[in-house]
Nucleic acid binder design. Structure first.
Lengths: 131, 131
DNA sequence: GGGATAGTGACGCCATGATGCAAATATATC
DNA sequence: GATATATTTGCATCATGGCGTCACTATCCC
C-alpha cells in the first residue's frame, strides 16, 4: 500500500530499471498479447456489448473465421484472465471479466501517472531543454 | 458526449456487435500489439521509471538484445503513440506519453464498466442461473 | 575534409501464432 | 446404444514478427 513511487531524481535508465515500481507488475505483456489480435478484440467487443454470457457458437456468428478458431480465441482470452468460462452441459458460456479488467486498467493508469515526471526539474541533463 | 451505453437488454452477440459503444474505439489491437512484446515492455518500464527522456543508446543498456533491435522497438512504440520521440542533433530522446497512456487506460476502464451487466436481470436466458 | 558517434534501413533466419479442415471428445436426447 | 449437438484438439499451411549482421545516413568534432 505504501507509495514508493515518489522515488528519486532521474537516473540512468539502467539504474532505473533496477528499481521496483508498480508498473513492473501491471505492464504485463501477456495480457496485452491476448488483446493484440484483431479477431480476438472483435470477439471481446462482441461479448462486452452483448452484456450477457454467450456460447462459443453464438460468438462465432459475429465474425467470418472458422468456428474452431473462435473457440481457440475464446479459450485463450479465458486463460489470460480476460474472460470467464462456465461450462454447463455441453456448452461453454463466456463472460468478460469486466470488473477485473477495469480495475487492472485503472491501476495501470495510476502506476503510469506515478511515473510521470513533475514539469519542474523533470530532467537534470540537457535533454529536456527547449530547442 | 451522450452516453449511449445504457442500451437495451441482452441480445444476440451478433446483434450486439452492430451496436456502437465506447469500447469500439478504445479497444485498439494496435496499441495492445505494441505492448504485447516482452522486450518492448521491458524498455517501456525502463523509460517510465527513469522519469526523464532517454536516448536509444542509454535504453539499449537496459537489456541484452542488439542495439538495432532496441532502436526498432522504440521507433515502433513511438509510432504506436506510447512514446514521444524528439531528435536533437544526432541523438533521439524518447519519453513515455504518460498522460495520454493513463487517460487512454482510464477511458478504457470506464468503457468496460459501461459494458458490465447489472447484477439484477443480467441475463434473460438460463445461462446465468447458478449451477 | 576525415574520422568518430548515433541512429536507420535492408536483408535473411527462425520461432511464434493465426487459420481452416477434419477427426476426436463430451454431453444431451431418443 | 445410436444419434445429434457443442466444443476441443491434431495437423498442415501460411503470414507475421523478433532478432542479428551489416551497410548506410546524419551529425558532430578535429
Amino acid at each position: 500500500m505504501a507509495s514508493l513511487s515518489q522515488s528519486r531524481q532521474p537516473s540512468s535508465p539502467r539504474q532505473a530499471a533496477r528499481r521496483k515500481a508498480a508498473v513492473d507488475g501491471l505492464l504485463d505483456p501477456e495480457l496485452f498479447k491476448a488483446l493484440g489480435d484483431p479477431t480476438r478484440v472483435l470477439l471481446l467487443r462482441c461479448l462486452l456489448k452483448c452484456k450477457r454470457a454467450c456460447s462459443v457458437s453464438e460468438v462465432a456468428e459475429c465474425c467470418d473465421v472458422d468456428f474452431s478458431v473462435v473457440a481457440r480465441h475464446l479459450s485463450l482470452l479465458a486463460r489470460s484472465g480476460v474472460l470467464e468460462a462456465r461450462k454447463v452441459g455441453r456448452t461453454v458460456w463466456y463472460t468478460p471479466r469486466c470488473e477485473d479488467l477495469a480495475s487492472t486498467f485503472r491501476s495501470l493508469a495510476d502506476a503510469i501517472d506515478d511515473c510521470s515526471p513533475t514539469p519542474i526539474d523533470c530532467c537534470g541533463s540537457d535533454c529536456c531543454k527547449e530547442e
